[in-house]
């Protein structure tokens, strides 16, 4: 097989090999790990199948306090009393009565206790497939780490550069549906607004 002209020199060949290696590594990092048969549960419920009222009751029973929500599709809870390290708020998104996602949030940037939270996650779910070995280090964990579960459920731990921590349980298929609906609605609203204000801009 003839060699391409740009690979004729040795330095070019080394460079191409390094680029190929980097692409392989980054693709493997971004790719979600293989599907698991484990069912993702939260508050002793299989959250993918839990109804809205059922999940609300379970969160209250665990110590969550309901908070006002501006959007009827989102339930907000203060979860300090639940006792998870660094996590103080919980948002649960529904589409009708169906669970879409539940997202824990830390109190703010430079949240303390996220090291303990990472160790607890590893204790329960194992090391995230995309994580390096320093995931449980005291100042590690920056970035996004995903565990995959049965039926397209995912658990995502994210730590921002400034230290804020989010832990999200999501039904990816339903989330994509909601996203598409929101995009369609936004497009339609934009069209109506442009028509109504066409003489003002």
């Amino acid at each position: 097989m003839p060699r391409p002209p740009f690979l004729s020199s040795r330095s070019n060949r080394i460079g191409a090999a390094l680029i190929a290696l980097a692409l392989t590594k980054s693709t493997a990092w971004a790719e979600s790990p293989g599907s698991s048969d484990t069912v993702l549960r939260l508050f002793d419920l299989e959250i993918q199948k839990a109804g809205r009222d059922e999940l609300r009751a379970a969160i209250r029973k665990a110590g969550g306090t309901p908070k006002p929500s501006k959007n009827s599709s989102i339930d907000n809870f203060a979860v300090d009393a639940i006792g998870l390290p660094t996590l103080t708020a919980l948002e649960v998104v529904f589409r009708g009565n169906d669970f879409v996602l539940a997202a824990y949030h830390s109190g703010g940037a430079h949240a303390s206790g996220d090291e303990r939270l990472r160790k607890m996650l590893v204790e329960k779910y194992g090391m995230p497939p995309s994580a390096a070995k320093n995931f449980t280090d005291p100042y590690g964990g920056e970035g996004k780490y995903t565990w995959s579960f049965a039926n397209g459920m995912k658990l995502v731990y994210k730590k921002s550069f400034f230290g804020a921590v989010d832990l999200t349980y999501v039904d990816q298929a339903r989330f994509d549906t909601v996203k598409k609906e929101a995009a369609d609605t936004d497009r339609e609203d934009t069209r109506k607004q442009a028509r109504a204000k066409s003489n003002a801009f």
Partner: peptide
């Protein structure tokens, strides 16, 4: 519960 109330930004 209305079905579509999340906006794109959320």
């Amino acid at each position: 519960v209305p079905v579509k109330t999340l906006d794109l930004q959320q």
